[in-house]
Design a protein around this nucleic acid. Structure first.
Lengths: 231, 231
DNA sequence: GAGAAAAATTGATCCGGATCAGTTATTCAT
DNA sequence: ATGAATAACTGATCCGGATCAATTTTTCTC
């Protein structure tokens, strides 16, 4: 049985200024490093399943992940999570299960940290805990925006929001390759797949963006922001 | 200028097993008690405004509060918060403003705790911080249910969800006085006021519930749960 | 690289629920 | 108690978007 490739350790990672494990002391970093393993996932693979025991917290080192609620009828994609973020924090100090499923959009490598060790670090180091609280709160505030978008805006506004998020937050570029299918864009915006297609066509016809293959380029961001605003 | 009525102090409150300030040591409770003031609000009054400086964390001792996003067009009620819960936790360790407005549905009394002192308690006492993390996570998980309800269920299912929440979580009784207007039920379920009225009528006609004045009684909870399930 | 499966696309139809326009019932203020 | 303002209610109309049905394109698989 092959060992997963360990490309680094927590001490190096922390020195390089990574967001994970910020505020931990050297001896704590050593403990975490022992309770850690690195795993890579192929495109489309599931990192963890909703309902499964959350025996580890994950940190995305490389890649792109969707987290979603699975349901008999249709999935609800809660969030697209890029590298440099934790997964599974919502299972800390509560019921020891994942509340959502996570799947990789791209080849993705994550650090898995034993939940118990992670909990222990928080209990030993309040500054680390405070940083986690800040992270959780940032996510909550984002989720308010999303709730607003999904419940109060019409289709064009909702799709504009997702596209702006991809350009501004995920890729930090107005031109990017979307690994997200029309179906998934529909599950993100809570609309029908056909509607996603029609609205993308509208945007293309109006010169707001162009699509060639999987590459999307936003030409008129002002316009898109206006569409987002008016809903 | 009259002082607000202080009905107790943090040490007594903690001894009586209140959820707030659980896990704090006696000397910490004394510090918090000095950084605390108690304020009562009349029905309809605003506790704090979205965008205002969040210079304190609040704990609802008595009453019922709605927190909502204010918007030029229409409000979005994020949550109904009963006594025994914090308000404003999402402003901890982040931008020092409230991200939503809070208003009292009933005469409400809250403890206000200086934000800086509250932060300090978390940084001094990791167990207290862990408890806050647990609280935040519980709220996040609830918000997933709500996101699902609002985006995937039809009107009847959405209203059923809110009524079940009121009966099960808020009032812990199948008969209660709703201080929430039809308009606010609409802002909670993201539907038109007229739709709320029509669906309540449907529920009454089918014997699921009865309404006399402001008093609502649920007669057939199984049916309501089924409606919630099928959406 | 051929065939199969999945994803993307298009047009036509239909319906859930919003909006509009009023009426009736409560609540509030003097 | 009384008029005014607000909330609750009802029916008629309309439209945004889902659904359905089919075709084309792309992506896997052996």
């Amino acid at each position: 049985m092959a060992e997963p490739t360990l490309t680094s350790n927590c001490l190096e990672c922390s020195e390089n200024g990574h967001a994970c494990l910020k505020n931990l002391a050297t001896d704590q970093l050593k403990i975490v490093d022992k309770a850690r393993t690195e795993v890579t996932f192929k495109k489309g693979e599931i990192l963890f399943k909703q309902g499964a025991f959350a025996s580890q917290i994950m940190f995305i080192r490389k890649g792109l992940v969707k987290i979603y609620l699975e349901n008999t009828s249709r999935d609800l994609i809660l969030k697209i999570v890029p590298e440099g973020n934790y997964l599974g924090l919502s299972s800390l100090f509560g019921k020891n299960v994942f509340h959502y499923t996570a799947a990789a959009y791209e080849p993705t490598s994550v650090c898995m940290i034993e939940r118990e060790t992670f909990n222990q670090m928080i209990l030993e180091n309040a500054t680390f805990g405070a940083e986690i609280i800040k992270t959780l709160n940032d996510e909550t505030i984002q989720s308010y925006d999303r709730l607003y978008s999904l419940t109060r805006k019409q289709l064009h506004g909702r799709l504009a929001d997702i596209l702006l998020c991809l350009a501004n937050t995920i890729y930090k570029n107005d031109k990017f390759k979307i690994p997200i299918s029309r179906k998934d864009l529909a599950d993100l915006t809570s609309m029908a797949t056909e509607s996603v297609i029609r609205i993308l066509k509208d945007f293309r016809n109006e010169g707001i963006l162009s699509l060639s293959g999987k590459t999307l380029e936003i030409h008129d961001k002002d316009r898109l922001q206006k569409i987002s605003r008016i809903g």
